[in-house]
Simulated assay, not measured.
Amino acid sequence: MTQQLNTLTPSQDLDFIFELMVGPTRMAVLKTAIDMKLPDILETAQEPKDIAEILEVEAGESNLIYFLDAMTALGFADKENGTYTNTPFSKSYLLTTSPTYLGGMVDNISQMQHRNLLRIPELILQGPPKVENRNKLDREEKWKESARHLANYQKADMAKRTASLISSLPEYSNIQRMLDLGCGPGIMCMEVVSNHPTMEGFLCDMPPLIEVAQDEIAAAGLESRIHTIAGDYNEIDFGQSYDLIWTSQTLYYVKDFSTMFSRIYKALNPGGLFLSLHEGLTCERTQPSDIVLSRLSLALEGQDVSFEQGEIASYLHEAGFYTIEIRIMDLPFGPSELIIARKSR
């Protein structure tokens, strides 16, 4: 996580500057390891000469060794007696055969986060550019392209976090119907349902993402307990009589918040729960720093979708929720605002 300068001692200030300067190198090593599929290669070849042969290196092994040493420095490889092997980290997240491979997700997200970084002075002076259609956040095909990579991330981390969170709620044993609104690949809802003896799950998202979710449902053998609703949640009927409605990183595409939260309220049974997990910017939209920085490129091109802390909760008050609880969850991409809203019985 990025440190704040006002929390550093004078002796740490220079450490912070040098830490910032090495950041692009870290990202370049990660991206190159993914692009060249070096973790895959290390599964079968550990000697530099053998790795060089697979890569068809033409100019000796010295630069390859420098790069493998950099991978080792970052924890992507282990080195012993001049040979290299994958670390558990690489086996889990950088090996293409791993069910939690995150290379595709890194490619997709880094493209969004980094594409404007070399143009910052231009964008400050000239304002947001016209966004190419392929880079628009609300393009259905864009999210279908990334949905399978997002599924791997949810399998690696968020699904288990979500299931643990929901199972800790006092109402958990009585939840029979859960709606994941804007579900993406649907892995989080699937994990929750599979850990509950009788719960049914309903996944709602655009048709291209529901196609991915249906593949995941079939692979998990949950066809009898997970159902899908395809369409724009602003326009379609996403059902009624839910005990729990879950939304995570998806409310950016709501067209009318008052209308949407009124619909969510009506779709819940008496005593039902609405859970929202999104960022909540503070300090006049300057914190949490990791969230602000990771979304700078999008913001500079006119695609700032971040919520301020308390913004979602204000709509829930208007919709009539009985109690609204706010927690801060530390997630891999930065602190996020978890809202637990309860409908009166």
Score class of each variant (00 low, 15 high):
T2R: 12
L8G: 11
T9M: 14
L14K: 13
I17E: 09
M21E: 14
M27L: 14
V29T: 14
K31R: 14
T32C: 09
A33F: 09
I34K: 03
M36C: 13
L38P: 01
L38M: 06
P39K: 03
E43N: 11
A45L: 02
Q46P: 00
Q46H: 15
K49R: 12
D50N: 14
V57R: 06
S62K: 12
L64R: 01
M71K: 06
L74G: 02
A77M: 05
A77P: 01
A77E: 10
S90N: 05
T97Q: 14
L102T: 08
G103E: 07
G103P: 02
G104D: 11
G104R: 00
D107T: 12
N108V: 05
S110G: 08
E122K: 12
L125A: 13
G127V: 10
P129D: 07
N135S: 09
K142A: 11
W143K: 01
R148M: 10
R148T: 13
H149L: 02
S167D: 07
L181A: 03
M188E: 15
M188P: 03
C189V: 02
E191L: 04
P197G: 02
T198P: 00
E200I: 00
G201S: 07
I210T: 10
Q214I: 07
A220V: 00
H227P: 09
G231K: 07
G231E: 03
E235L: 13
I236P: 09
D256F: 05
F257V: 00
I264T: 04
Y265E: 11
Y265N: 10
G271P: 10
R285Q: 10
Q287N: 08
S294A: 15
L298P: 03
D304Q: 07
S306F: 07
H317R: 15
G320D: 10
F321M: 10
T323N: 07
L331C: 09
S336N: 13
E337C: 06
A341D: 00
